[in-house]
């Protein structure tokens, strides 16, 4: 099974096919969606997309980390991380559909 990486261009192409705006405008709309979500999260407000999932921001406290190469202790400063929780619908869709796909590579 040929696996591929989908990017902005395929998503905005899908918007173009679906709604019939110009390609340019489709790309701009996609960008507006992503930046509105980003801004909302930057304000620590969570974003819930029904039947897809929710994005929320979690605050992490300071802790002591270690440089794995030198063994040296370094403080990891308090920071905020983004958490994505897939909806049940998305989880079910992916688990059912991909269970037989043999080797997905898992590059993150």
């Amino acid at each position: 099974m040929a696996r591929q990486t989908i990017t902005r261009s395929q998503l905005s192409e899908a918007v173009y096919q679906e709604v019939g705006l110009s390609r340019n405008e489709s790309a701009e709309l996609l960008e507006s969606i992503l930046s509105k979500i980003s801004e909302t999260l930057a304000n620590e407000e969570s974003v819930k997309i029904s039947s897809f999932g929710s994005f929320s921001v979690r605050r992490k406290g300071q802790r002591i980390g270690r440089n794995p190469k030198t063994g040296e202790e370094v403080p990891i400063l308090p920071r905020k991380v983004l958490v994505f929780r897939p909806s049940q619908v998305l989880k079910a869709r992916i688990s059912d559909a991909t269970i037989d796909i043999p080797d997905l590579d898992e590059n993150d």
Binding site: M1, R3, Q4, T5, I6, T7, R8, Q10, L11, A14, V15, E18, V19, L21, S26, L29, L30, I33, L34, I37, S38, I49, S51, F52, L82, F84, L90, R93, I94, D96, A97, T98, I101, L104, E106, N107, D108
Partner: peptide, 29 residues
């Protein structure tokens, strides 16, 4: 438009594909 975007991401993932949106993040399985 909004529905299409999230549907496309979901359907890509259900085919085992990865969705990479530079600057925003990447969805994978």
């Amino acid at each position: 438009i909004v529905t299409t975007v999230f549907d496309e991401i979901a359907s890509a993932l259900s085919q085992g594909d990865r969705v990479e949106l530079r600057g925003f993040g990447a969805f994978s399985v």
